[in-house]
Amino acid sequence: MTLSARVRLPQQARSGEVVEIRTLVSHPMETGFRVDSFGRRIPRRILTRFSCRYAERLIIDMELRPGISANPYLAFRFVADRSGEIELRWQGDQGEELVERGHLEVTPA
């Protein structure tokens, strides 16, 4: 299945409010430890990195290993402190890359 993501991004928040990002991305996260029915090893194919930039700052940088489930789910939170772009980026060991962007508008508390 081609790389595709479901993301839930906050679009508006008050300054100082804690907001959540939820992500789900289609990827087999093939561990490289399994064999097929002919006994041949199925080569590893995983997402290796996820990052989140918010208003020009790298706030999350995550390394993924084969112990992460297929179709990886990730949720995290941050404090909305200024308006800016949110950029989510997944990178895989086959050179694949997926980027999702959104804008967060932050109003004074």
């Binding site: 299945m1 479901r6 839930r8 939820r22 789900l24 289609s26 179709n71 789910y73």
Partner: peptide, 12 residues
């Protein structure tokens, strides 16, 4: 309905 991985196939 967000985190259910089957929804990836609904999207697709």
């Amino acid at each position: 309905d967000f985190a259910n991985p089957g929804m990836l196939w609904v999207d697709r």
